[in-house]
Amino acid sequence: MAEISFQLLLLQLMTGLALGAIYALLAVGLSLIFGMLTVVNFAHGAFFMVGAFLGVYFLGLTGSFWFSLVLTPLAVGAIGLLCERFLVRPLYGRGIDYPLLLTFGLSYVMIESMRVLFGLEGVPTSVPAELKGVVDLGIGSFPTYRLFLIVATAVIIGALWLFIEKTRYGLIIRAGSRDPEIVRILGVDIARVWLIVFGIGTAIAGLSGLLAAPTRAVNAEMGIPVLAESFVVTVVGGMGSLPGAVVAGLLVGVVFSMTSLFAPEYAELSIFVLMAVVLLVRPQGLFGKAGLMG
């Protein structure tokens, strides 16, 4: 094996964190929706994909990456709101498999719609001009955009944490995810809270699609492997646990990236091996509560 320097290892670690940042964002959205609504959102990868397309579309429309960064999650979140209100909501109280099947079907509707709207090849993307190039991290140069991914994710997750831990609405979400009935008795229209949480979760999925777009091919199928990877992350972190989603996202990113340094052909496999090991040692996931979501 070729000699691998310490610097290279550190740079690869950073690359893993940048990849993991996207996983963390995706898993946070997935976990938020599952923890609150007990809906396993199989359309999460499709919302990610739509976010990537809309990100490129809004970038073309407004000419500004930053406008797109604001508009895309709003647009994807609005689609999420409509889906919850008219498709998912009638299925509450019928067990976990109904919304799962619905969102599974919904994901194919979204994939086909993007094929019709944007064509089979997808759309070309590039790193926004202001984030092109590399920065010197002291351990070597690192792509500016990947550093931006890590920072942006930290900001988004930090803001979400503040929202959930420090605001009145966050208290409703924390209480409602654990005991929706008492929250209802105390005068909260919990259906509206579920709607908003589904909107936030899908908006974050859309945002992660937009952020990931410059680093991968944007086409209608791009969300399919992402969905599987997001589930790996939520299972490793513990279903419904937000800290678990963040830690497991970063961990999965780093494992993937380190494996691709030493044995690229096993990179895809490595994250599933990680999941299997975690499931054997801690079936509820790193941060999950045994038997029940947190």
Binding site: R168, L171, I172, A175, I182, V183, L186, G187, V188, D189
Partner: peptide, 8 residues
């Protein structure tokens, strides 16, 4: 306790 007034 805060929950007791959260919707009020």
């Amino acid at each position: 306790l805060q929950l007791g007034l959260i919707a009020s």
